[in-house]
C-alpha cells in the first residue's frame, strides 16, 4: 500500500533523512520510535507533503502512485492523513465548518457528491460520540483555546471523520493523561480495518500498550536501524536506545 525507498531529504542543505526504507501493507500498524532529533517528525511531514523539504533521492509511493509529485491536498484526497504533533488554531472558523469543507473537498476529488449540512451534522455527531467529545466542541473555533489534550483528541476525531486509508500519528500521545490516552487509542483502534494502515510515531512504549503495532522500527540519525515485532518496543522501554545504536554502528 505504502512504500518508501532510499529516501534522502533535508532542509536548507542539511540532510535529515539519510536513506529511509519502509513498506507498509493494508491492515498493518507500524510504529516508529527513536531518540529526539532522529528525523521522526520530518518523516511524517514528508509523507504528508509539507513544502520546504528538499527530497534529493529516493521514491515514495502510495497505492502505486508516486507521492513525491503530489501536493499535500492531493495526498489528502488519496486518503493520507497526518495527526499533527502541534495542531494549529484557526480563529473564527468552527470545527464543524472546517471539517465539512475538508470532507467535501475529499469527496469532490473522488467524484462523490458533497454532503449537505444535515447529512454532515448527523455523520459527525456519531463520530463525536466515539471520541467522547463534549457537546460544544464542534461549535468552537478550530483548536482555539483548546487544552493540549483536547487538540490531540480533535486530531483523532478528524481522522475518524475523514476515514483515511493511511494515517500517520505524530506523537499523538504526548501531553495526554492516561484517561485521554485510552480514549484516543480507542478512537484509533476503531478506525483500524483490513484495508487501512497506520504509522504511529512515538517516544513511549506506553501508547503501544493500547495501539498494538505489527512492526516497530527504530529511526536514528535519518535511517531505520532496526525493525522488529511489538516486543522490540518493550525491549527499548527496558534498555533504552544505546544498544540498538551501538549494534547498528558495528554492522555499519
Amino acid at each position: 500500500m505504502f512504500k518508501i525507498e532510499n529516501l534522502h531529504a533535508g532542509v536548507e542543505g542539511r540532510e535529515i533523512l539519510k536513506g529511509v526504507n519502509l513498506e507498509i501493507n493494508a491492515g498493518e500498524v507500524h510504529a516508529i520510535m527513536g531518540p529526539n532529533g532522529s528525523g521522526k517528525s520530518t518523516l511524517g511531514h514528508i509523507i504528508a507533503g509539507r513544502e520546504g523539504y528538499d527530497v534529493s533521492q529516493g521514491a515514495m509511493e502510495f497505492k502505486g502512485k508516486d507521492l513525491l509529485d503530489l501536493g499535500p491536498e492531493e495526498r489528502a484526497h488519496l486518503g493520507i492523513f497526518l495527526a499533527f504533533q502541534y495542531p494549529v488554531e484557526i480563529p473564527g472558523v468552527n470545527t464543524t465548518y472546517f471539517l465539512k469543507s475538508a470532507v467535501n473537498e475529499v469527496r469532490k476529488a473522488r467524484g462523490l457528491p458533497e454532503l449537505d449540512a444535515v447529512e454532515f451534522l448527523k455523520y459527525i455527531k456519531e463520530k463525536a460520540a466515539l471520541l467522547q467529545l463534549p457537546g460544544d466542541f464542534l461549535k468552537r473555533a478550530l483548536n482555539v483555546g483548546f487544552s493540549g489534550g483536547e487538540k490531540k483528541r480533535n486530531e483523532i476525531f478528524q481522522m475518524a471523520v475523514l476515514e483515511p486509508c493511511f494515517a500517520v500519528l505524530d506523537e499523538t500521545d504526548s501531553g495526554l493523561d492516561i484517561d485521554a490516552l485510552k480514549v484516543v487509542s480507542n478512537g484509533v483502534n476503531q478506525v483500524k480495518s483490513p484495508d487501512r494502515a497506520q504509522l504511529v510515531i512515538t517516544h513511549y512504549q506506553r501508547l503501544l500498550d493500547y495501539i498494538v503495532p505489527d512492526f516497530v522500527h527504530v529511526l536514528y540519525d535519518g535511517r531505520i536501524i532496526r525493525s522488529g515485532g511489538k516486543e522490540l518496543a518493550l525491549e527499548l522501554e527496558e534498555r533504552g536506545y544505546d544498544w540498538v545504536i551501538e549494534s547498528a554502528s558495528v554492522e555499519a
Binding site: 501536493g71 491536498e73 489528502a76 492523513f81 495542531p87 484557526i90 473564527g92 472558523v93
Partner: peptide, 28 residues
Amino acid sequence: GEDQIFYCNQRGIETQDAVNMIVNGFCK
C-alpha cells in the same frame, strides 16, 4: 502562517480556499 495553510492542505483543502477560510474566520 505556513503552519495553518499546511494544516488545511493536509485535510484536503486547497491553499486558496484555506486563505479564504482563515480570512473569513478573522472577519467573523
